[in-house]
Amino acid sequence: MSHHIIEFNNVHFTYPDGTDALKGLDFRITHGESVGIVGANGAGKSTLISHMNGYLLPAKGTITIGDLQLNKSTINHARKTVGVVFQNPDDQLFMPTVFDDVAFGPLNLGMTRERVIERVNEALTTVGCLNLKDKPPHHLSMGQKRAVTIAAVIAMQPDILVMDEPAASLDPKSRRQLINLLKEFRHTKIIASHDLDLIRDVCTRCLVISDGEVTADGRTDEILLNEPLLEENNLELPLSLQHK
């Protein structure tokens, strides 16, 4: 199925203040892959994610999502295909109750009320939060908030799931639950994180980004064992691989 593809071709992007965030990014992710994106702070991970559903459009180069090249007229298609879970759940959960928030996306897709309710219940059941339906987000724990943001995205049934630091500020148990949940998903997954153990657990492929470019691309096992490469990119061996 070709519509699960994301392809970046020589993508450049410069912020209005003159920062060159992306300098010729090239990669291709195909159906069913789970890809980790790692790199130092400021390497361009967030900018990259902002491009995946057209919040930012490249200054130079092309992005293909599914069968369509990303531009102003295909933004809606991109947003339907790619679901993004952002780093801070408080930025993402903007509605007063969990139900309203998860229903927001499906309602925007123009579904009937019955289907919206069905989708919301399904998505909340998947992440194990159906009992939180009527709660306001500020009554949730960090782990619950994270789970609800994921539900809010999968309720739109995207083909590709993109996540920015999904395990940030989670306690160990919630982190483990999240990892198990992610492993169950059959979507194409793209996860940007500093949590190399999580990447090792969930992703089979790994991209290393540095200074707006891809500096390494390969199997997670190989890349996360390559100490000199990691060192060079302000990273270190995953804890689970470090010898005492």
């Binding site: 559903n53 919040y55 790619v82 952002f86 930025d91 993402q92 903007f94 927001f104 996306g105 925007n108």
Partner: peptide, 22 residues
Amino acid sequence: ERSERIYHAICSRGFDGRIRLL
């Protein structure tokens, strides 16, 4: 800045200027 991040997040879920409540 937070409002910009929120805007980004709701855009990626298909925000079109209207917020629908069920």
